[in-house]
Every structure is written in C-alpha cells, then in structure tokens.
Computed example of a mutant assay.
Amino acid sequence: MALLLFTAIMTTSEEAELCFPQLNSSCRKIMRPHSVSMLIYITLSSISVLTVVLNLLVIISISHFKKLHTPTNVLLLSLAVSDFCVGFLMIFQIILIDGCWFLGDLMCAVHFVLDYIITSASIGTMVLISIDRYVAIYYPLLYPTKVTQNRVRICVSVCWVACVLCHCLILKDNVEQPGRYNTCLGECVVVIEYYAGIVDVFISFIGPVTVIVILYVRIFVVAVSQARALRSHIRDVTLQGSVRITVKKSELKAARTLGVVVVVFLICVCPFFCVTLSGGDSVVSVSSAAFVMCLFFLNSFLNPLIYAFFYPWFIKCIKVILTLQILKPGSCDANIL
C-alpha cells in the first residue's frame, strides 16, 4: 500500500547528505530548503496533534453519554478510533520527511503493519456505515429490530480482527525478517508478494469502494424520491403519518451527513491508492507521494470537523468535556441531543 510512496521518498539526488555519515552503506537524505522543511514539519505536526485531540473528543463523547449509544454512533466510534490511531501514525511520517528512518528495522515493519491494519479498518467501517444507512432508508420499519447495538459491535469487532489477521499474514515475512528488503541503512521498505498484493488491493480498496458507491447511489435515489413525496403530501398527512415523516426526515439527515463523511473519505483516500497502484517499476515523484500522503492523513482530521458542522450534539459534548462538567455525577445521563 505505502511501499511505492515511501520508496519514492527514499529516492533522492546524488548530492544529498547521508542519513548515517559515518557509514558508507547509508541512505541519502532528501535535501530541501530549511524554510520548506520547517513548513512541512509544522503542518504535519499540527495536523497530527489536532487529529488526535479532535478524535479523542469524539471517542469520549460517544463512550460517555448514554444518549449517544446508538448503532450508527458505534460505527462513528470505530471510525474515530481508527482516525485517532492515524494521528499517532503521522509521527512516523514526520520522521520520514528527510528520507531517513532511525528507529530500526523492526519498528519499520511494525509501522507498516499498523498502517495497513488501521487503513483497512477505516475502509471496513465506511462499508458498515454505508450498509447501516442503506438498511435505515430502504427498510425503516425493520431497522430498529435488525440493526441493534450488539450486532453492530459484533460487526465492528469482526472487521478489526479480520484486518489484524489478514495483514499480519500478508506482512509475515517482513515482520519475521525486518529490513530484508532494504538496500541501504536508514531505509524503511516492505515488500508484498504479487498475488497477496492483488488480494489486498481488492479487499482493502476496490471491493469496499465499489460497495460504498453502489449503496450510496441507491440511498441518494431513495432520498430524492422520498423528499419529493414528503413535500407533495405534507398537507394531507395524519398525525400518525407526521410521526413517520419525522422519522424519515431524521434518517435522511443522518444519511446526508454520513454521505458527506463517505465522499470526503473517498476524495482523500482514492489518490493515495491510485498513486500506489501506478505501477511496479514506474517512478513516483516525491512531490506526488508527499501530497497523497498528506491528503490521506487529512481525512482523519476532517471527520471530527464534519461532525461538529452537522451534529449539534458534538458541539454540546465538547463544551461539557472542556468545562469539566463531564466529571459531575450522573453526567453520562445528560440529554445532549
């Protein structure tokens, strides 16, 4: 997944300084103007810190307040956990800015394993979110009984466990013999077998993205038709019908909000995979690699901002947390909806 990107980052000019000056087998640093390097460091560090803090607020909010314990929010919690981890993984990317890896071969392998697992878990959670909204819109009467918190928790757990097992198996050789594919000291590279790579791309990218797009196209069609029906029959509904309309409106709003999350996710993630898949022997420029990596990380930073914009309860939760009202007895029962 990230092999070509990091390989590209390690490809530098011959005039670059060595990562380990005392060793002839050392890799070469990427040489940039000091101002450019500082700008990159500050930008990535800021995004990393904000990503960790904002997603931590989402995790605390959904975990603490009982009113937020819904099947859909369980999925948002899983997404926030993966985004929270991405914020920490950005530290490794910051270390690699100059094209040198100083943490050893084992940590390099661990970094890639975590990268694969968290990326796949995020995409898997997006698929579950799409399925959740599809069932809520297409089968509104069955949704409360078929989609329960326990079932969603089981699906999320299966998703994470499957991602861990799958990518530990795919990267097994790299973990057992860390650094076996490095060409110089200070390099961080992993290699996946050809067929395993094809399976991984299909499971982690092509398959999930196809499912997400198909489901949300169908959701959009239903949402448009229901919105027209609501507008045309709003004057003739009974009180009972009004209740049903309110429910439908809330589901449509949730679908629209999570649709924004999914679209932003696809915009940020697709370039990452496209550059990665641009060809085994083709040269990926350092600038394009850096751009898609930053775009990929930016998605984890944007998700909490989307919640803040579309979900009033998130703003209320932030106020309660920052003012330490969350420490008061019984705060978990507060009505923040």
Rank of each mutant, 00 (worst) to 15 (best):
S26H: 15
S48W: 02
L266K: 10
V237S: 01
L266W: 08
L56R: 03
V164N: 13
V292G: 00
V158H: 12
S278C: 14
Q240R: 13
C332Q: 10
T238S: 15
L185Y: 15
F291S: 06
I214V: 13
A289L: 06
C85S: 10
V36T: 11
F84V: 00
I219C: 14
V264T: 12
F297R: 05
H233K: 07
S82E: 01
L142P: 08
T43V: 03
I219L: 10
V286C: 07
P140K: 04
A136Q: 04
T7I: 04
I306L: 15
I214H: 06
V52W: 03
I137Y: 13
F273C: 11
G197W: 08
L302A: 11
G279E: 07
V201R: 12
M107Y: 13
A290N: 15
V113Q: 00
L324R: 15
L75T: 03
I318G: 07
C108R: 01
A289Y: 04
A334W: 14
V110G: 06
D115A: 03
Y195V: 02
E193L: 10
R218E: 11
G241N: 08
L114C: 08
I129A: 01
V58Q: 01
S13P: 13
L4S: 01
M38L: 15
S122D: 02
V86L: 06
V74E: 06
D200W: 08
A16W: 10
G259S: 05
I62S: 00
E14P: 05
M38C: 09
A223N: 09
V261L: 08
V53N: 04
R151I: 01
T72H: 05
S48F: 02
Y216R: 12
S35N: 11
V164H: 13
F301G: 01
V262N: 00
P71R: 04
V175N: 11
R218V: 11
F265L: 01
D105T: 03
S35M: 14
L305E: 11
L302D: 04
Y216I: 00
K29H: 02
V283K: 08
K253R: 13
P71A: 02
I62E: 00
F88P: 05
I129R: 02
L75V: 06
L50E: 04
P140R: 03
I206Q: 09
R218T: 11
I336S: 04
L302R: 01
C168P: 11
I219Q: 05
L23Q: 14
F20I: 08
V224M: 12
E251T: 07
F202A: 10
S25H: 09
C159F: 07
D281P: 01
P144E: 03
V199N: 05
V292W: 09
S45E: 15
N55D: 08
T11F: 09
F272M: 02
L56D: 00
V264G: 07
